[in-house]
Amino acid sequence: MDYVKAFLIGGLICAVVQIFMDRTKLMPGRIMVGLVCLGAILGFAGVYQPFIDWAGCGASVPLAGFGNTLYQGVKEAVDSDGLLGLFRGGFEASAAGISGALLFGYAASLIFDPKMKN
């Protein structure tokens, strides 16, 4: 059941974004920014976390999940550290993902050369 939910929900989110992309011709970078902000807002509204608890990776793997992670991080940090938490929480919660992408990305640039499309 986990897998069915992950497949259907994850697929559904991507399908909706595809409609949006085809209709608006927005550049992919803008779509990514939009998804992260949307995730943070839905996290703030208290919707996204229960959604992840229910749909699992179907909700956490899309970039909106990254936005939610950022907000949840800020929220927890505010609870424990007050105002200072606003400045700590986001990067603390997303540290693994961002560091991973940067480190693996850098490593890949050491190994691979740009290739032609055909």
Partner: peptide, 19 residues
């Protein structure tokens, strides 16, 4: 969008620029 929206799309944008 199926490959752009998941976290893998984010990673792709990082590594593509790096390479």
């Amino acid at each position: 969008a199926g490959s752009l929206v998941p976290i893998t799309g984010f990673a792709n944008s990082v590594v593509a620029a790096a390479i």
